[in-house]
Amino acid sequence: MTAFTASVCRSCGAVAYPPRRRCRACGKTGSDPVPLEGKATLVTFTRVYNLSLAFEERYITVGIVEFQSGARALGRLAVDEPEIGMELSCYVAPVRTVGYETYEGLWFERPGSPAA
């Protein structure tokens, strides 16, 4: 289980995910990787019913979270009744299989849940 990586701008310290070489805030080039980890807060979410054939579920729940570092990310929610503003912890697990390729992605769960 590898953590996903965000970037921190060497010039102004702005955090970006997905990582950026050229900073959106100050326009300078050059950044260092930082792991996308720790507690996160749920910004918004939706249950999606109209899914591609890559998914066998009747619906999936996806949401946008904000980490304490300020980085935001989208991921799958392993939460039954999500609420905006709730605290979540992050882990990495498969999210989609296309052909023989399985992609790993960010998952979010209530802190203290077994998967996290």
Partner: peptide, 26 residues
């Protein structure tokens, strides 16, 4: 959905309705 961000959105099964749903909720 192929126009969404390949690594940060598309792989999660995100569709345009999903992005619109998250926008609409807020």
């Amino acid at each position: 959905a192929t126009l969404t961000h390949p690594e940060a959105e598309y792989i999660y099964g995100v569709t345009l309705p999903a992005l619109a749903g998250m926008f609409a909720r807020l």
